[in-house]
Simulated scan of single mutants.
Amino acid sequence: MPYYLVTQTSLMEGADEVEAARKVLTKLKSDGAVGFTVKYDEENSQHVTVANVPASEVAQPAARESLPSPEQMQEDNMLQASAVNQAHTGVSKPRRLSVRSVTLGLSLFAAGVAAGMVIMALVDRTPG
């Protein structure tokens, strides 16, 4: 499973760093949705908006309830994942080159260089 760098940036006025951080935390808790920047690597970053569900609304299992089955846990994860704005989750993974494609590319390049050298040699030999 890959790792992502997830950041949320807010510009907030405050008397000091702690007050500004507390204001941002309060704002994040009260907003209906929160925007993040998600980076896979330096070239691949995406802006993602996630629905903000307050902790009080998240169903907590009662002390007497048994642990949920793996199927129930997977279903719950799917429901939580549906809270993400699907239009903004297209973080693309970097494309890896296979040995075959690199070899083919280098062969084509070498053939082009050789053909160019032959053409240049023929042009230089013409009387003129």
Rank of each mutant, 00 (worst) to 15 (best):
Q60I: 05
A55C: 08
A20F: 03
Q8S: 14
S45W: 01
M78V: 14
V53F: 12
V113Q: 12
M120V: 10
L5T: 12
G116Y: 06
M78S: 11
V123T: 08
A63K: 13
L25A: 15
A20K: 02
N85S: 07
G128Y: 05
P94A: 15
V18M: 14
A111W: 09
M120Q: 09
L5R: 08
K27P: 00
S10R: 14
N77F: 05
A55G: 03
G112N: 10
Q74K: 12
Q80K: 08
E75W: 05
A83Y: 09
K39Y: 03
V6W: 01
G14L: 07
Y4T: 00
A110K: 06
D16P: 05
A87N: 08
A83H: 15
P94E: 13
D124F: 02
A110L: 13
T37N: 12
S101F: 06
V84C: 04
K29Y: 08
V18F: 14
V38E: 00
K23V: 03
P54T: 03
S30T: 12
D16S: 11
I119M: 08
P70G: 06
V84R: 00
S69D: 06
G112P: 02
S30Q: 13
S10N: 11
E75I: 02
Q8L: 07
L79P: 02
A115D: 06
Y4R: 00
I119F: 07
L28E: 09
E71H: 09
V102P: 00
L104K: 15
V84K: 00
L97N: 06
V24L: 07
L122H: 05
D16W: 04
I119W: 07
Q86R: 05
L122C: 13
Q86I: 13
A62Q: 11
S69E: 10
E71L: 09
Q74T: 11
Q46W: 03
A63G: 02
N85G: 03
A121W: 03
K39A: 10
A33P: 01
Q74F: 03
A110M: 09
F36D: 01
L79M: 10
A111R: 05
M120D: 13
V58T: 10
T103V: 12
V50F: 03
R100C: 10
S69R: 04
E19Y: 02
V24M: 04
V6I: 15
S56K: 12
L97D: 07
S69L: 08
K27D: 13
V48C: 01
S10K: 10
T37C: 12
V58M: 10
L108I: 07
E75M: 09
R100P: 00
V34N: 03
L106R: 11
A114S: 11
N85L: 04
E43G: 02
A33Q: 09
A63M: 13
K23T: 06
P94Q: 14
P2N: 08
P68K: 10
Y4F: 15
G32P: 02
T89L: 08
Q86P: 01
K27M: 08
Y4M: 01
L25F: 07
Q60Y: 04
M120P: 01
S101P: 02
Q74D: 11
G128H: 08
A111L: 15
V99T: 14
A81W: 02
Q8W: 06
G35D: 04
L11G: 08
E13T: 09
S30V: 06
D76W: 09
H88D: 05
V53T: 15
A115K: 06
A15C: 07
S45K: 06
P68A: 10
A81M: 05
E42G: 04
D124T: 11
